[in-house]
Amino acid sequence: MNGPNNIYDINVFFKPSVAPPVLKEEWNGTNVSLTWNNLGADSYSVKRAEKPGGPYVSVADSVYITSYSDNAAKAGAPYCYVVAANHTCGENQNSNEVQVTPQPKGLRCVR
Rank of each mutant, 00 (worst) to 15 (best):
D42F: 11
G54W: 15
N38A: 07
N38K: 10
P55L: 05
S45Q: 08
Y44S: 07
L39D: 08
V46A: 01
R48C: 12
A41P: 00
S43N: 15
S45L: 01
A60P: 02
T35M: 03
T35F: 00
S33N: 13
S33T: 15
V57F: 13
P55G: 09
P55C: 04
E50Q: 14
N38P: 02
S45M: 07
A60K: 12
A60H: 12
G40W: 08
T35S: 14
T35A: 13
G53S: 13
Y44C: 09
N38Q: 12
L39W: 04
K51Q: 09
K47D: 12
K47S: 12
V46F: 01
E50R: 13
L34A: 08
G40V: 06
P52I: 10
S33E: 08
G29M: 07
N38E: 14
R48W: 03
L39E: 06
N28E: 11
P52Y: 03
P52W: 07
D42R: 12
Y56I: 01
V32D: 00
K51M: 11
E50S: 15
P55H: 06
S58Y: 15
V59I: 15
P52V: 14
K47G: 02
N37C: 10
V59C: 08
V46L: 06
N38I: 03
T35K: 08
G53F: 09
N31I: 03
T30E: 10
T35V: 14
S58Q: 05
L39N: 11
